[in-house]
Write a protein that binds this DNA or RNA. Sequence first.
RNA 1: GGCGAGAUAGCUCAGCUGGCUAGAGCACACGGUUCAUACCCGUGGUGUCGAGGGUUCAAGUCCCCCUCUCGCUACCA
Length: 670
Amino acid sequence: MQNKGSYYLTTAIAYTSGKPHIGNNYEVVLADSIARYKRKEGYEVFFQTGTDEHGQKIEIKAQEAGVTPKEYVDRVAGEIRGLCDLLNISYDKFIRTTDASHERQVQKMFKRFYDQGDIYKGSYEGMYCTPCESFWTELQLVDGKCPDCGREVKPAKEEAYFFRMSKYTDRLIQYINEHPEFIQPVSRKNEMMNNFLLPGLQDLCLSRTSFRWGIPVDFDDRHVVYVWFDALTNYITGIGYDADGDSSEQYKKLWPADLHLVGKDIIRFHTIYWPIFLMALGEPLPKQIFGHPWLMMNGGKMSKSKGNVIYADDLVEFFGVDAVRYYVLHETPYENDGNVTWELIAEKTNADLANTLGNLVNRTVSMSNKYFGGIVENKDVRLSENDRAIDEDLKNTVTGAYGQCQAQMESLRVADALTEIFGIFKRCNKYIDETEPWVLGKEKDSDPAKGGRLATVLYNLVESILIGASLLEPFMPETSGKIASQLGAELREFDMLGRFGLYPNGNRVTDKPEILFARLDMKEVEKREAEIAEAQKAETAEKAGGQEENGEGQPVVDLEAKPEITYEDFAKLQFQVGEIIACEAVPKSKKLLCSQVKIGSQVKQIVSGIKAHYSPEEMVGKKVMVLVNLKPAVLAGVKSEGMLLCAEDQEGNLALMTPEKAMPAGAEIC
RNA sequence: GGCGAGAUAGCUCAGCUGGCUAGAGCACACGGUUCAUACCCGUGGUGUCGAGGGUUCAAGUCCCCCUCUCGCUACCA
């Protein structure tokens, strides 16, 4: 293939807070297939993936595990890299945000932003009005003064560095409008525009002082750099960017990246903050950001304590690496989320890999051995009109597949590209049916014409399969290799795939055909799945058994630490037990319920955002914890005179706080 | 509440700028076949194309309205 220049693609880097599940690994498989494909097309590909290793969550996880954060991330990063290797990911660089070179560059970039005025020192909580005891963001201030009392405000102690996003917003809007291909799929572009860019960007807080596990700001070492800035910049530090202008040759060759592949959940960071950071550095923006859909497990509800988390290593052990790759690539179409369960993978493996592909290779090799001792030879006998038409149709399908595949890959429709490739194998199966080799085989010795025809039929099959396998290589490299080896030939380069008949005449296929994909018994699949579920549950139970230890099945919720308060601060809050005597949904609101709450002898109206978790009916009669002396506010046009207190987990599930014993409405909570 | 996406066969989905009897894959049923991993090939759907209205010679395909689902966002005190 001719050299088509460089092609730089990345995945998002994986957060090292724990072992990733198949839904996380899906992205690198997708990226890998694109990387391998582009390489075969003649691009000089550089494919980077890696791990994101800083942040408070990791600091806490490490503490729980009784190890240093570095020890913790070393272990998890190793695990993640191991999964990549297991999945046959052909990354060129595996970057870690704890790499010394990355850390140094992040510090330099941070300093440079500060020096050029993009970063200013402000306050994380906001401006503090001492008499009102309130924090305000700069935007809320009226003429730089407290919007409540109009008095002077001053920065709070909780200082932080902020990035002036507003400075670059217009340029970014213009860029996005002029480059319709920048954000893919396009529906995401509108989301970003309408929700963030057009209303105006808030300045982004770029440092934290509440924990230590991060890259220190070198000129103010109480601060560590915000993890997103740390993480996003990996795309340039990994290839040798230098903030002082001494970037590597590699960087000059590869940047701007051709493709950032990221999950749809973090497309905002990649299409807004990242481009703005690059503008501030004076570097060009990446050519395309693709926000791919997710692979959902059992409809998205998974937990280790239920035993339904699906991990790549379990799948690979049972199905084999290429069956897993095939499934995740084929099942996630383009814009919609895909689904993954053990049963679905098994079904797809049986239908497409065992039946269509594996059986095709097996029957072709078997017939070659049976009829010609494994020798594959095109006899070029005279064909009937009918046979000629059949052969032509086969060849057209096979030689045309690359073009079809190409068109799909151009728009990153990997699933559709795979479908095109499997069209070859389906056509081959049909070809066998049309030519009926077993009929020819019976008369091949008595009728040389039939024998010749049979040889040609098998030659055409072997040739077609080899072309199909060559095209399949980026997606299922191991399988393609096995097929080529069974056929006794080498996989082809892409620019050969339009030509039919390159298989060496008289070459020999293997005499010991190996089953590529065994048909799976659904009972076996269910059994294995159940075993793994049991193991997960057992592991969770074991961890939960330890006193303070939190297993991954009972996730901890880590919050950003707030500043310490005094007892006096606390004493200002008035908590009481309230009894909900009436409750109704707030019209024109998706999340709000309006409750009448009896507190002692008074009744307060309180609006709460808990509609998704409680129906108005079940609210009535509950005794709940109420923050009584909160300043009244109007929500969705309804007055609210307090706050019902709830616990909230990682998924945003809410649980009302209720007294553990019967208590009268109005009882003080202290 | 705002913005956006979607609602098509049992399941997962294709159907571009409106045009002949609305498609694919899976599953299922039947038929054929036996080289092969009980495999492959063929055949099979009366689907109100979410409801209603409109434009048009002609509408899943355009317009209006409604219902529901999903995503982002705001409020979630």
